[in-house]
């Protein structure tokens, strides 16, 4: 059967592209490029199926093959190493020549077979697809091949289960549950461990930047809340410097200047401010606090009786 002109054009455009894509699968260095090439081939095949009066199959091709199978490939590539590239140097002696030879030979033989064979005159699927292609397929599938279909269903289930089984990793260490974790935390207490999780920035915190320590309920900065590396590098900022920066803003609002704490603090904090970059505890809190400045103690305005 001679295909119509449109189909011919379609074919002759797609076929070389498909062959090129297949060849790039063969020659691609990076696996992802190969995967893309294969996907291209599959989409083209879907188009060809549709052209060949097999629309159902064409859609299934896109959904299953391109959509599921190739995505699966890409996921695995991701797991395995996306940028792992194959060296194209052949390790097995003579394999390259054998491969090329056999590939060409196979192609030659198959093409030879096809060209030699005499085919009956093509019928086309117009009659078969009368009640739409899916209906025709369904009729054949569920009538003649129902057993095979059931078996294939079992196969799919088996495949899914097998994938689970194959990738299952056996636990090598005992499972750490809540109880175990709690016990471990308690056990670490004497060596400086901590029971509670790391603190949130705190109610009294002015900001929650990474380099600013959180404030505990008493308003004192918590050292561990800043990353150790920042501490080591000296990039931690004291809670005071922030408030210091904001104090100017606050001071400008005169009503606030009436607060006696603020006024007293004015005088103190400038003296101690300089030497507080590595000892946040020693730093006088940047709040209007009255009273002696006590390292580790901070007074926050408005907190009654902040002694502990």
């Amino acid at each position: 059967m001679i295909a119509s002109g449109g189909e011919a054009v379609l074919f002759w455009v797609l076929a070389p592209l498909m062959v090129l894509a297949a060849l790039s699968l063969l020659f691609a260095r990076k696996a992802v490029h190969a995967a893309i090439a294969v996907m291209f081939v599959m989409v083209d095949l879907a188009i060809l199926y549709i052209a060949q009066e097999a629309p159902f199959l064409g859609v299934v091709q896109v959904v299953v093959y391109t959509g599921a199978v190739m995505m699966l490939f890409l996921f695995v590539l991701m797991l395995v190493g996306v940028d792992a590239s194959d060296s194209l140097v052949e390790t097995i002696r003579g394999q390259r020549w054998i491969g090329v030879l056999l590939g060409l030979g196979l192609a030659a033989v198959l093409v030879g077979v096809v060209s030699q064979a005499t085919f009956p005159p093509a019928v086309g699927l117009a009659l078969a697809n009368e009640a739409t292609n899916p209906v025709a397929l369904a009729r054949v599938l569920f009538a003649d091949y129902v057993f095979a279909m059931e078996v294939v269903g079992i196969l799919l289930i088996t495949a899914a289960v097998s994938a689970l089984v194959l990738t299952h990793r056996r636990r090598l260490t005992p499972k750490v549950g809540q109880r175990e974790r709690a016990d471990a935390k308690v056990a670490e207490l004497p060596s400086g461990g901590r029971l509670t999780p790391l603190a949130a920035p705190g109610v009294y915190a002015q900001n929650n930047a990474m380099d600013t320590p959180a404030l505990d309920p008493q308003g004192r900065p918590i050292e561990e809340s800043v990353s150790r590396i920042l501490r080591i590098r000296g990039q931690e900022r004291s809670a005071g410097t922030i408030l210091e920066a904001e104090r100017d803003v606050l001071v400008e609002h005169e009503p606030l200047r009436a607060l006696p704490a603020l006024r007293a603090q004015d005088a103190n904090e400038r003296t101690v401010q300089a030497a507080t970059s590595e000892h946040p505890e020693g730093e006088a809190p940047a709040g209007e606090v009255s009273g002696p400045d006590d390292p580790g103690r901070s007074r926050v305005p408005g907190v009654p009786g902040g002694e502990d």
Binding site: V64, L72, P120, L125
Partner: peptide, 27 residues
Amino acid sequence: RMHGDVTGQVLAFFVMVVAAAEVVVGL
């Protein structure tokens, strides 16, 4: 298409299913 029989498509369908299962297990 040549033979005017959708059995070929049914077979191709089966091939797809099996290939999918095979890919799952293989990967």
